[in-house]
Amino acid sequence: MPHKRRTHEKPENMKKTMRQLLSYMASYKWGFVIGIVCAVASVSIAVIGPKITGEIITEIANGFMNKVQGIGGIDFDAIKKTCAILLAIYAFSAGMEYAQSFIMATVSNKIGYRLRAQMSEKIDRLPFSYFDSHSRGDVISRFTNDVDTMVQSLNQSLASLVSNIVRIVGYLWMMLSISWQMTLLALLIIPLSLAVVIVITKNSQRFFLAQQNSLGLLNGHIEEMYGAHEIVTAFNGQKKSIEKFEMYNGQLYDSAWRSQFLSGLMQPMTMMI
């Protein structure tokens, strides 16, 4: 029968785990460095865009007022030049963002490919006692779901973390250069947004852990029940098997629904604030 997957999903020594992960990724460090540089370049150049847009609007407003007063008009040549600069800036930013996405996706999936290959080699050396204490669904889940989660984190979270830091610093500098009073007003909502994010993250994290646990149990049950279908049928175990499947499936539905709902609340809540 399937054994319960370990509910203690967090590493016992986070620092040691992170050192091992960084050491494992060392051979791909230049790919990550180039991807991060592209992300920084993309965000840095894009930060300038709103201020240039503001200059275009100011030029139109001043020209309109001059036309009303009969002392001039809108300088369309200056606006065209500024629009060309703005277009070039956003084109360069989009190019850097594409390069960053391509590089990070390539490097992170290479790491996932290498990790699965090494896991496949190691599983052939494991003693039978390991498979007696771990269901096949749990082992398969580690090859698929757990590795995919790590690959997605490397692909999205790392570059997003760096680019968001640069974005915060860049927009803060740009806002201060326009009006420190309006900047101070905007900064007052940051603590409230952080409080909302912390509350949502705390509540959603336990449901994400429960989702992974339920997924391992469900995969293990399906794998073992289909693998031993003749035995289950011979001993009239269909009803018990279906009941257990419905229980695991219900647990997965409940944890997945709650985790996705809470994590989905984060962006609309912060945007509303």
Rank of each mutant, 00 (worst) to 15 (best):
L161N: 05
G250C: 01
R206I: 10
G54T: 07
E121G: 15
Q267E: 11
V162H: 06
Q251L: 13
M182Y: 01
F143Y: 06
L158K: 01
K81C: 01
G72I: 08
M65I: 11
N203F: 11
N164P: 01
Q156E: 10
L209A: 09
Q238W: 00
S101R: 11
K239D: 03
L187M: 08
I79V: 13
H3S: 15
M247D: 11
R258E: 09
P268S: 10
I60W: 09
S27V: 11
G250D: 02
M150V: 14
M18I: 15
L265E: 04
L86A: 14
I140F: 09
A46D: 08
I57Y: 14
H134G: 02
A195G: 08
T7M: 07
I56S: 06
W180R: 11
K10M: 11
S153Q: 13
H8V: 08
V169L: 14
L262W: 09
Q69D: 13
Y248R: 05
K67I: 07
V68S: 09
T183A: 15
M247S: 11
V166A: 15
H3P: 10
F76T: 14
N155H: 14
Q152S: 14
F128L: 14
E223F: 07
Q205K: 12
F207P: 03
M272Q: 00
R167D: 12
I165P: 00
L161E: 03
F131P: 07
N155A: 14
K202L: 13
L86C: 10
L176H: 09
G35P: 03
I200C: 07
A88D: 06
A195S: 12
Y248L: 03
A99C: 13
R125I: 09
S193W: 01
V107G: 01
M272H: 06
S141T: 11
A41E: 01
V162C: 01
M65T: 10
I52H: 00
R5N: 02
Y130N: 15
I111Q: 03
A99V: 08
M25N: 06
I189Q: 09
I168C: 12
L176P: 02
E12A: 14
I85M: 07
E224Q: 07
S44Q: 10
R142C: 08
K67Y: 15
S263V: 12
W180I: 10
Q251S: 15
G49K: 12
M65E: 09
I190E: 00
V68W: 08
V151W: 00
L126A: 13
N213G: 04
A26V: 06
L126K: 13
L22M: 12
N213A: 09
A91E: 04
P11M: 08
A26T: 00
V40S: 06
Y113W: 14
M18L: 15
L217K: 04
D77H: 12
F207M: 12
T53D: 05
A91C: 12
M104N: 03
V139Q: 00
Q238P: 02
W173Q: 03
E223C: 08
S259A: 14
I111E: 00
H8W: 06
G49P: 06
V40Y: 01
A210I: 01
M272S: 07
H221T: 05
N164C: 02
A88G: 08
A84K: 06
M225N: 04
S108V: 03
L86D: 11
